[in-house]
Computed example of a mutant assay.
Amino acid sequence: MASQGTNDPSVQEYYTSAESRLGYAVLLGNARHCGFWPKGTWWPFPIGRAQRVMEEKLYQRLDLPKDSLVLDAGAGSGLVAAYMAKQGLRVHAIDLTPLHVEQATNNIESWGLSDRVSVQLGDYHDLSGFEDDSFDGIYTMETFVHADDPVKVLRNFYRLLRPGGVLVLHEADFHWDSEVLQEVLRLSHCQNTLKEGSYEEMLGEVGFGHTTIDDMTDNVLPLWRLFGIIGAVPYEILKLCGQQHRFINIMAGVEAYRNWGQGRYISVRATKPKGPG
């Protein structure tokens, strides 16, 4: 993982920028994650329906009984936690951005799910407030990519899971080499860039077993194609003015689409062994 510079934007700065707040609200229904489309899809609308499909994919990957307790590590606006609760899980949701905690709390209350979902400010780098073996499952939906110390985070998850517990990570797995793409990752605080095979290696190092990876790259392409198309002209204008770095989501959408194939979108599932170790 590239080291973070002192002038690099924080996760909070990225998500609370005017561009991020407007973009997530207008294009993604205030969700913070991709949708799932059948391979070969060109028309991405309605995006919200595809996002619910992605949430269902995550729920299926957890494969936990009703009333299991799960940790949502990076709750955003609470949409994923709400979906899990509606499927019968109990959810404790954390996020390190106060704006997200406020939004998630208000959403969960307005949807009448406060008896199934709790929300609090929290950072997955420090989960000392939770007891060992306290969750049946833990998941991230495009938030593990922001980890400054991914192995430390995985060790925290391992400690919190009960024996036989399940970890599911839905994440972009970048391996961008060009300077402009590295700049995109830096500005969006996504410097947890892992080479192919790194997830299996790290999870094994921490102690997880039975790791499986589903490649969903083709299934998220319709959304990134949309970003690449609608952002192309504004991006070129911004580049002419030297202002592209101030609009990181436009920059990321266009560059990701133009360099499609230099990364994956994957669902990682691993379990904590039931026996010793």
Rank of each mutant, 00 (worst) to 15 (best):
T140Q: 04
G74L: 04
Q103H: 08
F36V: 12
T16F: 00
F227V: 08
P44Q: 05
E142P: 02
E142F: 00
G275Y: 12
A50L: 11
G277I: 12
R155A: 04
S118Q: 10
M141G: 07
L187Y: 00
G277E: 05
R246Y: 15
G261Q: 11
D136A: 06
K239L: 03
Q244E: 09
V145Y: 06
P163G: 04
L79Q: 14
E102M: 13
R49H: 10
W43I: 07
M141D: 07
P234I: 03
T217C: 06
S3P: 14
R90G: 02
L121M: 10
H100T: 07
T97A: 11
V70P: 08
N156S: 00
L240Y: 08
H189Q: 02
M141H: 15
G48H: 12
K86I: 05
V254R: 02
A81I: 00
G242I: 01
Y235K: 00
R264P: 09
H175N: 14
I237F: 11
V151L: 09
G129C: 09
W37T: 06
F36W: 14
H92Q: 06
E55L: 03
R269C: 13
R61N: 13
H245E: 11
A31H: 15
H33T: 05
I213G: 14
T193D: 12
D148I: 11
H100M: 11
K86M: 15
N259S: 11
A50S: 10
V119E: 04
M1P: 15
S267M: 14
D148L: 14
A50C: 02
D8W: 00
F208A: 09
L169D: 13
S128F: 13
P65F: 01
D149G: 00
P46C: 01
P65T: 01
G275F: 12
V91L: 04
R21Q: 13
E56M: 14
N249Q: 14
L62C: 00
E201V: 08
M202L: 09
Q4F: 14
R32H: 15
D136T: 07
S110F: 07
R155N: 07
E55R: 02
G207H: 02
E200I: 01
H146S: 05
T140S: 09
